[in-house]
Design a protein around this nucleic acid. Structure first.
Lengths: 360, 360
DNA sequence: CTGAAAGCGCTTACAG
DNA sequence: CTGAAAGCGCTTACAG
């Protein structure tokens, strides 16, 4: 009875425990023959590694975390997810070093590179990097590649160019767009006019959101897509644009696929269109929740940012503890929320929290 | 550097490791003085238990699982969640014994009691019991109480009478009702007529769903609630009732708060009301998904059954490994899904899956 | 390349 | 009630 352990594998294969370990973890310093003997024994006995025992025995995994000090609205939820999972994995000997840089500053590139270099000195095993676009940080990522440091990028705009030497975690932007369109189709009578607001039309995930939104509308043939605007995530700008949009068109619904939702909602209220023009927003910022509670926003497509942060940490854990390979990219599915389905503060991140199992 | 261990606590307190363990786990066989010395040392050193090490050292936790062999539509998702989490915790020395009974049979009570007795012989530490109402199984639950076996109940209708000797995991039914009402408010013009279908008006969670639905409608003052029907989860009955409802009323939307959604959708189609009368359904049964894909059902309120199963197992794990106390009841928040936001098969249970971290 | 030993941080009998 | 020892199933240096 009881579980098969490496001890039994070693006996069956006629080698020592250390040799079994090398065969199992793919380390060097083992002969072809020994390795084969071990693998045969594993197969024969049906051995499965106990990773709990493994993480007690191995050295600590040090993960470097480079996150923005600014742009709280968007990044704080990702950072919460990272911190949540790092804390959860303390008993598994996962340690972290955190450095911050100002992603919106002019010298963001330089600041980030500096962080990468300090992390290298700190002797971290891997790096989690939250940023907003690939091109700015190409040099930093190359530096990591030179030093053989694996990097997981979490954030937005990463799809623009998926680097060879890093893994990307991002929301399924195309799906976000489709969901938003479907909602407006349900909320509005046929032949209504809708518009979509993104941060920038030059960034892949925003392009994907527009594409998903537009594709769904064309497929269903219920609504008419009037226009796609760029807010540059600026509330003043989005407010002005919303006013212009309302003045010039008979607009019935707007998908605000990025930040600057406050400006949009303000314009909606100022023009007396609260509750008339249906708004579908993005994420769960304070502005968004406030406007949901006031019935200005009907629904929001949460980009599952908390879970994105959780997954980044967990991916490294699995890699270093179980040798799991990285995939190039992970597209996280968005979650739909309405006012009544919002989670209370105590349940915040419930899916990646209850589900993630505090002490496991 | 490095983490504080019980070794250091023992030295600080001037006692042995075994004594520290007794103090920390609340076991008997330790003097007041020793216990206090340990607690002082823990406080002083800031000691935190490493549960990973603990689960390697302790004896296995044996969990008995009593689940229905029938009523697949509803229970299979809970059972999947239980199985998922049991499998995830193998490395933590969590073992399971599963027995099945026919919840819809006439002698369900007798069958369940028989399962309880066999579980007791199996020497399980705790019991997970999936059932559909409290009163039928009172004797079985009393038996468990006599034998000092903790029971976690997962399913529906459990709130009817929350026993003293068990913990209940159930969906937040009131919240389900509110979400459904909110959706129909968004989908329909003001002053539209809506109805709600439940399985039975005599079961607390169904009463709660009606209450949530009705409360929200009254608060908003947008819709008119015509009627609440009992389907007894029978498709023939729900089909007939839907036809009658349509014939007698100008109905615009229906919240199908329980099974028998197939009958409702059939009647909707037969009467030529597909897409006209807006349907909000419950859960993610095959019938439900099929009708979502055909645009008969606009949205569904998923009762998070997979997660309920996961949580049942995890609750016991936390209890036995970390001494966590049980709460009387856990109300799991529902999740809103539309056709476009449905998860693909590969992502099934993503929240309690990705988030639950396969190998952690 | 290989094996024997020590150790990760706990829990569990068991002798006193 | 208390403590010393063994052990959970691995990984990690290190000597050969």
């Amino acid at each position: 009875v009881g579980r098969i352990t490496i001890k039994e594998v070693a006996r069956e294969a006629g080698v020592s425990l250390g040799t079994v370990n090398k065969a199992l973890t793919g380390k060097t310093g083992i002969s072809k023959e020994s390795k084969q003997k071990v693998l045969n024994a594993v197969e024969k006995l049906g051995y499965k590694t106990n990773y709990v025992a493994g993480s007690l025995a191995r050295n600590a995994i040090r993960i470097g975390i480079i996150i923005p000090s600014d742009w709280e609205d968007y990044y704080s939820d990702i950072c919460d997810g990272i911190a949540y999972e790092m804390n959860r994995l303390i008993d598994w000997k996962v340690e972290g070093v955190t450095l911050k840089y100002a992603v919106k500053s002019n010298d963001a590139e330089q600041q980030a590179l500096e962080c990468f270099k300090r992390m290298n000195q700190e002797g971290i095993n891997a790096l989690i990097f939250c940023h907003d676009n690939y091109s700015t940080y190409a040099r930093a990522l190359e530096f990591a590649a030179e030093k053989n440091i694996d990097v997981i990028c979490v954030g937005i705009g990463l799809l623009d160019k998926c680097s060879n030497f890093s893994t990307v975690i991002e929301v399924d932007a195309y799906k976000c767009g489709r969901i938003a369109a479907e909602l407006l189709e349900n909320f509005l009578p046929d032949n209504s006019n809708v518009a979509v607001f993104v941060g920038s039309k030059g960034i892949t995930p925003h392009i994907e959101k527009i594409k998903g939104f537009s594709d769904k509308i064309v497929e269903s043939g219920k609504l008419k897509l009037c226009a796609a605007f760029e807010t540059e995530d600026d509330d003043m700008l989005s407010q002005r644009m919303t006013h212009e949009l309302i003045d010039k068109n008979a607009i019935d619904g707007i998908y605000v696929a990025t930040g600057a939702v406050r400006g949009v909602c303000q314009a909606i209220c100022e023009s007396g269109n609260a509750g008339k023009i249906k708004i579908v927003a993005t994420d769960l910022s304070d502005d968004c929740i406030k406007n949901m509670n006031n019935n200005i926003i009907c629904a929001t497509v949460y980009q599952n940012t908390f879970l994105q942060g959780v997954m980044a940490v967990n991916l490294f854990y699995k890699h270093f503890s179980a040798g799991e390979k990285f995939t190039d990219i992970i597209l996280v599915p968005p979650v739909l929320f309405t006012k009544e389905s919002l989670l209370s503060d105590g349940q915040k991140g419930m899916y990646a929290s209850y589900s993630t199992m505090q002490n496991v």
